Amino acid sequence: MQKCHFLTRRRALLAGAASMGAAGLAGALATGTGRRTAAPAAPAAGAQAARSPLRPSAYRLQPLTGYGPPRAVPGRTPVRSAPLLRMTGRGNTMVLTFDDGPDPRYTPDILDTLAAYDVRAMFFVCGETAAENRDLLARMADEGHVVGNHTWSHPLLTSLRRSRIRAEMERTCEVIEKAYGEPPQWFRAPYGAWNRATFQLGADLGMEPLAWTVDTLDWTTPGTRTIVERVENGAAPGVVVLSHDAGGERSQSVRALRDYLPQLLDSGYHIGVPRRPYV
């Protein structure tokens, strides 16, 4: 009975997710390449967006305001040969993503900032940390954020056997479904290292592969100002920004979000979460 009640609450909170403002997040996400890929010898990151300075704007595109049950995903998740890198479609839409959490030291501050501006983001969580912080996944669900699968222990998947890759994904899917209220629909490979097995297994579990367009490199702790500049310089319609809310000392990432988020909104960008390409 408790789980049914939770799922009902989750569906109620997600009402109207398809409504993304005037521009919307109507499109799919664009893939990095149409070629088939072999297992990379080293981790591969998403492509950096072209420099696009922020423009002053007299208006702010309104963030999401309502939620409802997600629309059913028809058919089988396609097996891709490259991860999705950016959104397509019209409008100044951007996606903020945070990896490796949740971490009780930093994730609540990030959630507080997002809530202050009524903005939704994506959190790619590791199962072993999510299992210890299920309350934070529940809060993400309550506040309309999307939770994706980032494996159980953050290994380099291209060095693992297929059975181990599946186990890393499946264990995390189970934790997310129990704490968040529904299974994840998105997957991100640690270090951006993808191969055929990761695409096939992710699709088998109903997940689309999502990489990024702008990498803040915040894990190197380059300084708050540098992180802000990387987001501002990379800001452009359709970009997916990669930051971290765990996996190390992330206070710079917390402070940077407080700085660049209002600037993006004041410059006319709509920050939201993507829908599945075919929903």
Rank of each mutant, 00 (worst) to 15 (best):
C4Q: 11
L7A: 04
R10D: 00
A12D: 01
L13D: 00
L14G: 02
S19H: 10
A22E: 08
G24N: 04
G27W: 04
A28N: 02
A30S: 12
T31P: 07
G34C: 05
R36G: 08
T37N: 05
T37Y: 03
A42T: 12
A50C: 07
R51V: 15
R51H: 10
P53A: 09
L54P: 05
L54M: 09
R55G: 00
P56Y: 07
A58P: 01
Y59V: 15
T65F: 06
P70T: 09
R80K: 04
A82T: 11
P83D: 01
M87D: 00
T88S: 14
G91K: 10
M94Y: 02
V95I: 15
F98P: 04
I110R: 04
A115K: 11
D118N: 14
V119N: 01
V119E: 02
F123W: 01
C126V: 12
G127R: 09
A141R: 12
D142K: 13
D142Q: 13
E143F: 05
V147K: 06
N149L: 10
H150R: 11
H154P: 06
S163R: 14
R166L: 15
M169R: 05
I176S: 02
K178N: 03
E182C: 08
P184F: 08
R188P: 03
R196L: 10
F199V: 11
L201T: 03
A203N: 05
D204R: 14
G206I: 13
E208G: 03
P209G: 07
L210C: 13
D215N: 15
T220Y: 00
P222N: 08
T224H: 04
T224K: 12
I227Q: 02
V228Q: 04
V228R: 05
V228C: 08
G238E: 01
V240P: 02
V241C: 06
L242E: 00
S243Q: 13
A246I: 08
G247H: 08
E249F: 08
D259N: 06
L265M: 14
D266C: 08
S267M: 09
Y269C: 08
G272T: 12
G272Q: 04
R276D: 00
